[in-house]
């Protein structure tokens, strides 16, 4: 049984049922586009299965048919080149928790741990990058169990740090990721949307599949009525005294404009963008990956 903080045994059990999601992530996307250039040597026998209408007749094993007079397909497990790098925003703002059980960082850590387990369990490679205004840890992709444990340990030791700049961190990480693959960015994206996507452009041009998970606390999605309150920034020393009931509408509008900008830029670059509330289960994010 797992003894890691962010990888619970019940989550592992549940992840096993998420094979389709992982498969979609690995095969539907990665295996299709990252097929090996040396096709023959890269396949290994997987199993026989009975022919069903719609299967490719070329896949029928005619030798077996000659012996048994039955149509069996010989299936192969294709070796893919998936490299998935998970970016976890570890800035101070990610430590915010108001209404949900988990802080944004904890929520992201749970999801990152599960995703890493899922990827490694499929013998693909997963890397991890923890960042705030600097890159705090960069773990290149790997597919071993030890590598997974390293990831889980890093997540466990990780804490919300100082100020953040998603765009700067993505920019700096680009030369560290040698091979194209998938990057999954988990952040609250309190940054300029244009700057974020300018940083993502090199990845997109190199053929990376990009998933952005915009993780917010319910208290950020809808501002809680606190009357007259003094807001102290978790990043920096700023303070603002505000009358929250009076600015709730303005806050909603501001957030709506921000997410709208992110969504529009993502759509234009074929990037997958999802706004996530920490109130929801992080398993929902796998559904998003499966799309």
């Amino acid at each position: 049984m797992s003894s890691f903080k962010y990888l619970k045994p019940e989550d592992i059990n549940r992840l096993r049922n998420y094979e389709f999601g992982a498969k979609a992530l690995v095969e539907g996307y990665l295996s299709g586009r990252h097929r090996s250039r040396q096709r023959g040597s890269s396949t290994e026998f997987h199993e026989y299965r009975q022919y069903t209408p719609g299967d490719d007749p070329a896949m029928v094993d005619w030798r077996v048919f000659a012996r048994s007079d039955r149509h069996y397909l010989k299936t192969f497990e294709q070796e893919t080149n998936l490299e998935c790098t998970i970016f976890v925003d570890s800035s101070a703002s990610m430590g915010f928790r108001e209404k949900a059980e988990l802080s944004k960082l904890e929520y992201c850590s749970f999801f990152a741990a599960c995703l890493a387990w899922l990827v490694v369990s499929k013998n693909d490679q997963v890397g991890l990058q923890l960042f705030d205004k600097d890159i705090r840890h960069h773990l290149p992709p790997g597919s071993t169990r030890k590598h997974l444990h390293t990831i889980l340990n890093l997540l466990e030791e990780n804490e919300a740090g100082s100020e953040t700049s998603v765009s700067d961190s993505l920019k700096r990480a680009n030369p560290l990721i040698k091979r194209k693959g998938t990057i999954v960015v988990l952040s609250d994206f309190f940054d300029d949307p244009k700057a974020i996507f300018q940083s993502l452009n090199p990845y997109i041009h190199r053929g990376f599949r990009v998933h952005l998970f915009h993780v917010l606390d319910p208290g950020e999605i809808s501002l809680t009525d606190r009357g007259l309150a003094r807001f102290s920034a978790m990043e920096g020393d700023d303070e603002l005294t505000l009358h929250t009931p009076s600015i709730r509408d303005a806050w909603d509008e501001e957030l709506r404009q921000h997410t709208k900008a992110l969504r529009a830029l993502a759509a234009s670059r074929n990037v997958d963008y999802t706004l996530v509330s920490t109130e929801d289960s992080y398993f929902n994010l796998f559904d998003r990956l499966a799309h």
């Binding site: 609250d188 309190f190 606190r226 309150a229 003094r230 102290s232 920034a233 978790m234 603002l240 806050w251």
Partner: peptide, 22 residues
């Protein structure tokens, strides 16, 4: 001058924008 309770908030960028606009 009243000193309301301090509330730690993730980021003040949006709030500052709101103050500026309003």
């Amino acid at each position: 001058r009243s000193r309301p309770a301090v509330f730690e908030f993730s980021d003040l960028t949006f709030l500052r924008n709101i103050v500026k606009k309003t």
